[in-house]
């Protein structure tokens, strides 16, 4: 076996490379910090594989270009950061309604409004509750390392095609800017039959993709179909556990905070405190059943987030009644250090 190809890249470039490894042929975006290395890399390298890079005139234009490319069956991606993702919500809702696949990357920054460029997990609700109008869901993947940025981006394209649904990668400035060595995969892009794709109607009947259903009963039926799809997505649930075997208390965190708090958990272990980590990788669908089963063994959970309390609601909805759920949230604007989070663990551990 040949030696794996290892390269040192930052988190944003890892996403761009993951997209190319997944066979992404179209990228549409509008620049915004802290994710500009994604379009920077793709603008340089997509043409090498006969791909198309378009810097659109706005976020709204780029999400609708994504919708258009996805409708033809092509693999396509857009990326932005929080304020730009807000602008894309209408298009995401239309993609979900018309069952058009596509990958949307949110390297989130702090809000509300223009906020700042520091890392934040303030977009959890927006990402997992739909964001746009209507009763829809997007699959949401939350990487916590540069390698996962790469691997989960590859996976996002397969999931989008498999479920005919938009898939979101939810990272933040920390995950976009940090550099780590990554193993580049010799990936064969997944092949999916797309009989629904709009390819010109040569030698076949015309067909169309739409989200408008005006005949009585049609919309209800359509929404039931979407709901069933969201139920099936539970097969994709992914999570990581760390040192939970004998834990008295389990920290629940995702993304960059999960990364930082791993060090805090090691500090706590060194002091004899039995603390472990549960890290959801899929934020939608949320690993609620896994957490529920865990709560029959462990009765104390500690949700820690870089916001003032969003994912903690999913933790509370998942665990058995009688479980204690504590919360520590850091409003966006600064990055917590392992020592600071260790102090918070000490405060609630008993």
């Amino acid at each position: 076996m040949s030696k794996p190809k290892v390269e040192l890249v930052n988190g944003n470039e890892a996403i761009a490379r993951g997209a190319m490894a997944a066979g992404c042929k179209f990228y549409f975006g509008y620049p915004i910090t802290p994710q500009n290395e994604i379009p920077e890399y793709l603008s340089k390298h997509l043409p090498d594989i006969d791909g198309t890079f378009i810097q659109a005139e706005s976020e709204i234009a780029s999400i609708n270009m994504l919708l258009g490319a996805g409708a033809t069956g092509a693999r396509a991606m857009t990326s932005s950061s929080s304020p730009g993702i807000s602008l894309k919500q209408e298009g995401i809702s239309y993609m979900a309604g018309s069952e058009i696949p596509g990958v949307i990357v949110n390297m989130s920054r702090s809000g509300p409004g223009l906020g700042g460029i520091s890392p934040s997990q303030g977009d959890y609700f927006q990402a997992t509750r739909g964001g746009g109008h209507g009763d829809y869901r997007t699959i949401v993947l939350a990487p916590f390392s540069v390698q996962e940025n790469y691997d989960l981006t590859i996976k996002a394209f397969d999931l989008a095609d498999q479920y005919r649904n938009p898939v979101m990668i939810l990272g933040d400035a920390l995950l976009g800017q940090m550099k780590e060595p990554i193993i580049l995969r010799d990936n064969k892009p997944g092949k999916f039959d797309k009989p629904w794709a709009l390819t010109g109607a040569k030698n076949r009947k015309p067909q169309f993709l739409k989200s408008l259903y005006l005949n009585e009963g049609d919309l209800t039926q359509h929404n039931w179909k979407l709901f069933q799809k969201y139920q099936q997505m539970k097969a994709e649930i992914q999570y990581e556990t760390y040192r939970i075997e004998d834990a008295d208390m389990v920290v629940v965190s995702f993304g960059s905070v999960a990364r930082i708090i791993k060090s805090s958990i090691n500090m706590a272990r060194d002091k004899g405190m039995k603390v472990g980590l549960f890290r959801p990788v899929t934020l939608y669908p949320y690993p609620e059943e896994i957490l529920r089963r865990l709560s029959q063994k462990v009765h104390h959970f500690f949700a820690v987030e870089l916001n003032t309390g969003q994912m903690v609601e999913d933790v509370k909805l998942s665990v058995d009644k009688g479980s204690r759920v504590d919360f520590y949230g850091r409003p966006p604007g600064s990055i917590p250090t392992p020592n600071e989070l260790f102090d918070e663990i000490q405060k609630v551990y008993r």
């Binding site: 920390l174 940090m178 780590e180 990364r259 930082i260 708090i261 791993k262 060090s263 805090s264 958990i265 090691n266 990055i335 917590p336 250090t337 392992p338 020592n339 600071e340």
Partner: peptide, 8 residues
């Protein structure tokens, strides 16, 4: 490596 951010 856990945290890429260091306090002390």
């Amino acid at each position: 490596i856990g945290s890429p951010v260091i306090h002390h």
